[in-house]
Design a protein around this nucleic acid. Structure first.
Length: 562
RNA sequence: UGUCCCGUGGUGUAAUUGGCAACACGUCUGAUUCUGGAUCAGAAGAGUUCAGGUUCGAAACCUGACGGGACAACCA
């Protein structure tokens, strides 16, 4: 399915940089990358884009990719997230082997480096409160002004920083700042705060530390300590790069130098990627949890029925650039359909059952009709499905007064029950009060059994069906996009909650599925013929199977119909 | 009134780094089909934000506009 790409050797700008660096013999001709999540939430498909790049580049150029938890803020991070992050990366098919690192592993080195900067008069302790420091920073268009503590003596700074870490001062009382350039046009260079006092215990280092490094003071240095050559991150860190380079410059002892390269974040239509807002959805009960099948989280997509291959394929398709792009969810849906079409067995499942009685079919008689499991893959074999006098078909497949081009069942019309016989409708029972069709009466043509050579008759429509006496009841959860706005989180005047799609989950009970599905296991995937791809939910039991609809089949009838 | 980044069909990306804009999704035809799926064949749709300049030749290089984004957390 990727044949067409062979003639398209174009590589991303990132890969071009890497290839050039290699050609120039930088960093000993090595490629070492890292994937650096903060353990403060679950991974989503945007992270998958980064994971594919980080691990992908390392693999392609014979290098390694480290997993590094960016755990420099103990008040926001939890162990709970660490396990889920590792599980999701593995699920995608990537492995960091023994290279599982934590920014907190480097707290000692970082502290020493900070002390070193103080000694070189490149850092100082500032006693001012946050709002004052902030106002002295100026604005993007106005230069900052120097803190009165900027000229503090080295010995005093050393003493104060040590006492900050001993817990002598309350949180917020003092910070350590790098002494760089207050009037700089780049705000990140205006004496950035590099250490703050936090007294909450850390999930790995306990209460050993009272001061914690800020992101900018930890990330580049961690890269340096691990020998990272290419530090790939998203566009919003572009303005941080001069600071990243500044710290490395102070730290380096030889020619080795990590290089930060920024690429565009993944945005999807009708989707919201902000971790904070996703957390709100979970906490407010708008969804059933981080792994709700409507969530863009990897665990949500997994439960929805997405395969790692389809996600990687999608990411492959969208590429890496510096353009802030919004990708169409229909491309993601294309990727999962393409994958599932090749690998899933076809089965019969009737979502909204309507009973059809075949009057001239012998009562009590059962035939096992043979069906192909997957027309795309002969090796998946065949199966037998019981057929009898009473079957269920889809309510949508019968109309009392059909429009043009309705190739399904209606009074006087003929249709094939896939794998079985051609039937003709010659009556139905209607509830006079509600107008609902309750039963449909048909006759079958015994000469039209599928596979038989007497079956020369042709009909336009073919329906899926389930034998009434053999059917098993199932619950089916139909999912649709969570939001009904293309950019739910991007509206200035409206809260994203306003755009929640009230029909994003429709639970159907009393669905009828073929008996072979009794033994289906959670996460097992099927194509319900003519309907879509479905995946067994974790809530499923053999007594009460539960299926999630991953995605519908493309349906040109809906277009004809309107 | 700053610095940095970005601007190619509806969407996302290409264009062998200066040689008459390609691919995928989507859309629309038709063929085929015991899934209105898949498959196959084909079509429409941009002249590359705009204006200058360099050049035999510019989507690409230069200048200037215009438009979008990032940066003012003791978050990452």
């Amino acid at each position: 399915m990727r044949k067409k790409e062979e003639s398209k050797p174009s590589i991303s700008f990132i890969e071009q940089f890497i290839a050039e660096d290699l050609k120039d013999g930088k960093n000993g001709g090595k490629v070492i990358t890292r994937f650096p999540p903060e353990p403060n939430g679950y991974l989503h498909i945007g992270h998958a884009k980064a994971i594919c790049l980080d691990f992908g580049m390392a693999k392609k150029y014979g290098g390694k990719c480290n997993l590094r938890f960016d755990d420099t803020n103990p008040v926001k991070e939890e162990v709970e997230y660490i396990d889920s992050i590792k599980e999701d990366i593995h699920w995608l098919g990537f492995d960091w082997e023994e290279r599982e690192f934590y920014a907190s592993d480097y707290f000692g080195k970082l502290y020493n480096f900070a002390t070193d900067l103080i000694k070189r008069d490149l850092a100082y302790v500032d006693d001012q409160p946050a709002d004052l420091i902030s106002s002295q920073k100026g604005t993007p268009s106005q230069p900052g002004t120097e803190s009165p503590f900027r000229k503090r003596q080295i010995n005093e700074n050393l003493d104060l920083f040590e006492r900050m870490n001993k817990g002598e001062f309350d949180e917020g009382r003092r910070v350590l700042r790098a002494k760089i350039d207050m009037p700089s046009p780049n705000m990140h260079l205006r004496d950035p705060i590099i250490y703050r006092i936090i007294k909450s215990p850390h999930h790995r280092t306990g209460s050993k530390w009272m001061v914690y490094p800020m992101y900018d003071f930890a990330h580049g240095q961690s890269d340096y300590f691990e020998g990272i050559t290419h530090s790939l991150c998203t566009l919003e860190f572009e303005v941080h790069r001069p600071l990243y380079d500044w710290f490395i410059e102070q730290l380096k002892t030889d020619d080795y130098r990590p290089r930060q390269i920024e690429f565009n974040r993944l945005n999807l239509t009708y989707t919201m990627m902000s971790k904070r807002k996703l957390l709100e959805l979970v906490q407010e009960g708008k969804v059933k949890g981080w792994d709700d099948p409507r969530m863009p989280t990897l665990c949500g997509l997994r439960r929805r029925g997405y395969t790692p291959e389809s996600i990687k394929r999608f990411i492959d398709l969208i590429g890496y650039t510096k353009v802030e792009a919004t990708n169409d969810v229909s491309l993601l849906e294309h990727a999962i359909r393409e994958d599932l079409n090749l690998r899933t067995p076809r089965v019969f499942g009737v979502l909204n059952p309507l009973k059809v009685i075949i009057k001239n079919y012998p009562e009590g008689h059962v035939e096992n009709v043979e069906l192909i499991n997957n027309p795309e893959d002969e090796s998946m074999g065949k199966r037998f499905v019981p057929f009898s006098r009473e079957v269920y078909i889809e309510q949508d497949d019968f109309m009392e007064t059909p429009p043009n081009k309705f190739f399904r069942l209606a009074p006087g019309m003929e249709v094939r029950l896939k794998g079985a016989y051609i039937i003709k409708c010659d009556g139905f029972k209607k509830n006079e009060k509600t107008g609902a069709i309750e039963e449909v009466y048909c006759t079958y043509d015994a000469n039209t059994r599928s596979g038989g050579n007497t079956s020369v008759k042709k009909v336009k429509g073919t329906l899926h069906w389930v034998s009434a006496q053999h059917a098993i009841d199932a619950e089916v959860r139909l999912y649709d996009r969570l939001f009904n706005h293309e950019d739910p989180a991007g509206q200035k005047d409206d809260d994203y909650r306003k755009f929640l799609n009230s029909d994003s989950l429709i639970i159907l009970t009393g669905c009828k599925v073929e008996p072979s599905l009794r033994s289906a296991r959670p996460l097992e995937k099927f194509q319900f013929q003519r309907l879509g791809y479905f995946c067994v939910d974790y809530d499923s039991t053999s007594l009460k199977p539960v299926f999630n609809r991953t995605v519908q089949l493309k349906d040109s009838w809906v277009k004809v119909n309107k």
